[in-house]
Amino acid sequence: MREIKFRVWDNEENNFWGEGRSLSLVSLVSDSLVNDDSTVLEQYTGLKDKNGVDIYEGDIVAEITQFDDDEPDIYEIVYNEDGHYPAFDLKGWTGEVNGISELSLTYGIEVVGNIHENADLLVDDINRMMPDDIGNDIHEFLHGGDK
Protein backbone atom coordinates (compact mmCIF):
# COMPACT_ATOMS: atom_id res chain seq x y z
CA MET A 1 0.00 0.00 0.00
CA ARG A 2 1.38 3.43 -0.86
CA GLU A 3 2.24 5.78 1.93
CA ILE A 4 0.37 9.09 2.03
CA LYS A 5 2.20 11.63 4.19
CA PHE A 6 2.34 15.38 4.54
CA ARG A 7 4.51 17.95 6.23
CA VAL A 8 3.54 21.47 7.24
CA TRP A 9 5.74 24.58 6.98
CA ASP A 10 4.79 27.33 9.43
CA ASN A 11 5.35 30.74 7.81
CA GLU A 12 5.08 32.55 11.15
CA GLU A 13 7.52 30.33 13.08
CA ASN A 14 9.74 29.65 10.01
CA ASN A 15 9.98 25.93 10.65
CA PHE A 16 8.25 22.65 9.95
CA TRP A 17 5.75 21.42 12.49
CA GLY A 18 7.37 19.00 14.94
CA GLU A 19 9.58 16.36 13.39
CA GLY A 20 8.25 12.90 14.07
CA ARG A 21 4.75 14.27 14.73
CA SER A 22 2.22 12.10 12.95
CA LEU A 23 -0.08 14.22 10.83
CA SER A 24 -3.19 12.45 9.63
CA LEU A 25 -5.05 13.72 6.58
CA VAL A 26 -8.22 14.19 8.65
CA SER A 27 -6.45 16.35 11.25
CA LEU A 28 -4.76 18.43 8.54
CA VAL A 29 -7.91 19.11 6.55
CA SER A 30 -9.97 19.98 9.60
CA ASP A 31 -7.22 22.05 11.23
CA SER A 32 -7.82 25.74 10.56
CA LEU A 33 -4.07 26.38 10.81
CA VAL A 34 -3.49 24.54 7.55
CA ASN A 35 -6.23 26.39 5.72
CA ASP A 36 -4.77 29.90 5.88
CA ASP A 37 -1.66 31.69 4.61
CA SER A 38 0.34 31.03 7.77
CA THR A 39 1.14 27.46 6.73
CA VAL A 40 2.11 25.49 3.64
CA LEU A 41 0.96 21.90 3.24
CA GLU A 42 3.42 19.73 1.29
CA GLN A 43 2.78 16.16 0.17
CA TYR A 44 5.21 13.24 0.15
CA THR A 45 5.92 12.15 -3.44
CA GLY A 46 6.16 8.48 -2.53
CA LEU A 47 9.83 8.51 -3.59
CA LYS A 48 13.13 8.51 -1.74
CA ASP A 49 16.42 10.05 -2.82
CA LYS A 50 19.73 8.17 -3.21
CA ASN A 51 20.22 8.27 0.59
CA GLY A 52 16.74 6.97 1.43
CA VAL A 53 15.42 10.43 2.40
CA ASP A 54 11.70 11.02 1.73
CA ILE A 55 11.13 13.49 -1.13
CA TYR A 56 8.39 16.06 -0.51
CA GLU A 57 6.79 18.75 -2.61
CA GLY A 58 8.88 21.89 -1.97
CA ASP A 59 12.16 20.00 -1.60
CA ILE A 60 15.21 21.10 -3.54
CA VAL A 61 17.03 18.23 -5.19
CA ALA A 62 20.33 17.95 -7.01
CA GLU A 63 20.89 15.66 -9.96
CA ILE A 64 23.62 13.14 -9.21
CA THR A 65 26.22 13.80 -11.86
CA GLN A 66 28.12 11.15 -13.78
CA PHE A 67 31.52 12.75 -13.12
CA ASP A 68 32.78 14.36 -9.90
CA ASP A 69 33.74 17.60 -11.63
CA ASP A 70 30.29 18.09 -13.22
CA GLU A 71 28.15 20.84 -11.71
CA PRO A 72 24.80 19.28 -10.66
CA ASP A 73 21.53 20.75 -11.87
CA ILE A 74 19.26 21.90 -9.03
CA TYR A 75 15.46 21.58 -9.13
CA GLU A 76 12.45 22.26 -6.95
CA ILE A 77 9.92 19.45 -6.51
CA VAL A 78 6.46 20.69 -7.56
CA TYR A 79 3.08 19.17 -8.21
CA ASN A 80 2.42 19.79 -11.89
CA GLU A 81 -1.29 20.14 -12.58
CA ASP A 82 -0.78 21.57 -16.07
CA GLY A 83 -1.28 19.53 -19.17
CA HIS A 84 -2.60 16.02 -19.38
CA TYR A 85 -0.25 14.43 -16.87
CA PRO A 86 -0.78 15.62 -13.29
CA ALA A 87 2.18 14.41 -11.23
CA PHE A 88 5.10 15.50 -9.08
CA ASP A 89 7.87 16.84 -11.28
CA LEU A 90 10.95 19.06 -11.35
CA LYS A 91 10.29 22.78 -11.80
CA GLY A 92 12.16 23.95 -14.88
CA TRP A 93 12.69 20.44 -16.25
CA THR A 94 12.74 20.52 -20.04
CA GLY A 95 13.01 16.82 -20.85
CA GLU A 96 10.41 14.89 -22.80
CA VAL A 97 9.42 12.67 -19.85
CA ASN A 98 8.76 13.29 -16.17
CA GLY A 99 11.96 14.71 -14.65
CA ILE A 100 11.83 12.81 -11.37
CA SER A 101 11.36 9.53 -13.22
CA GLU A 102 14.12 10.32 -15.73
CA LEU A 103 16.75 11.31 -13.16
CA SER A 104 15.81 8.59 -10.67
CA LEU A 105 16.30 5.95 -13.34
CA THR A 106 19.60 7.35 -14.64
CA TYR A 107 21.99 8.85 -12.10
CA GLY A 108 19.62 9.62 -9.24
CA ILE A 109 18.67 12.68 -7.20
CA GLU A 110 19.54 13.87 -3.71
CA VAL A 111 17.52 16.15 -1.42
CA VAL A 112 19.78 19.14 -0.66
CA GLY A 113 17.24 21.41 1.03
CA ASN A 114 13.78 22.93 0.72
CA ILE A 115 12.33 26.14 -0.70
CA HIS A 116 11.65 27.59 2.76
CA GLU A 117 15.09 27.26 4.30
CA ASN A 118 17.38 26.96 1.26
CA ALA A 119 15.89 29.07 -1.56
CA ASP A 120 19.41 30.38 -2.21
CA LEU A 121 20.25 27.00 -3.76
CA LEU A 122 17.81 27.75 -6.57
CA VAL A 123 19.16 31.28 -7.05
CA ASP A 124 22.69 29.93 -7.44
CA ASP A 125 21.51 27.53 -10.14
CA ILE A 126 19.68 30.31 -12.01
CA ASN A 127 22.76 32.55 -11.81
CA ARG A 128 24.91 29.73 -13.17
CA MET A 129 22.67 29.55 -16.26
CA MET A 130 22.66 33.31 -16.89
CA PRO A 131 23.29 35.42 -18.81
CA ASP A 132 24.88 33.35 -21.56
CA ASP A 133 22.09 30.75 -21.93
CA ILE A 134 19.35 33.36 -21.99
CA GLY A 135 21.33 35.64 -24.29
CA ASN A 136 21.92 32.74 -26.67
CA ASP A 137 18.21 31.84 -26.63
CA ILE A 138 17.26 35.44 -27.44
CA HIS A 139 19.86 35.55 -30.22
CA GLU A 140 18.51 32.29 -31.69
CA PHE A 141 14.96 33.64 -31.55
CA LEU A 142 15.86 36.92 -33.26
CA HIS A 143 18.36 35.61 -35.77
CA GLY A 144 17.42 31.98 -36.35
CA GLY A 145 20.56 30.27 -35.11
CA ASP A 146 23.39 30.04 -32.59
CA LYS A 147 25.68 33.00 -32.15
Rank of each mutant, 00 (worst) to 15 (best):
I74Y: 01
D36L: 09
W9D: 05
N35H: 14
V26A: 15
S38Q: 12
D133Q: 07
L28Q: 07
L142T: 06
V8M: 09
D133S: 09
I126V: 14
N98F: 01
H84Q: 09
W93Y: 08
N11R: 14
N127I: 02
G135N: 11
V26L: 13
D120V: 11
D89H: 03
N51K: 15
W93L: 01
D36A: 08
F88A: 01
N15A: 11
K50A: 11
Q66P: 02
W9R: 01
G20A: 06
S22A: 08
W17Q: 06
I55T: 04
E140G: 05
A62R: 01
L105M: 08
L28Y: 09
F88E: 00
G145A: 04
S22W: 11
V61L: 04
I74C: 00
D31F: 07
G58M: 02
I60K: 00
A119E: 14
D133G: 03
E63A: 05
P131G: 10
Q66I: 07
Q43K: 15
S27Y: 07
D49A: 08
G58E: 01
I126F: 13
W9A: 04
I100S: 00
Q66H: 13
N15T: 11
F141M: 05
N136P: 03
N136I: 03
E19D: 15
I77W: 00
D70M: 09
G113C: 13
F88Q: 01
F6V: 07
E76I: 00
Y75R: 00
D73G: 05
N118R: 07
D124E: 13
L47F: 12
D146Y: 06
S27Q: 13
D73C: 08
N14S: 12
L105D: 10
N51G: 12
D68G: 10
D49C: 07
E57F: 01
Q66N: 10
E3M: 09
R21Y: 10
D73N: 10
F16W: 14
T94E: 06
L23T: 06
E96N: 11
I64A: 00
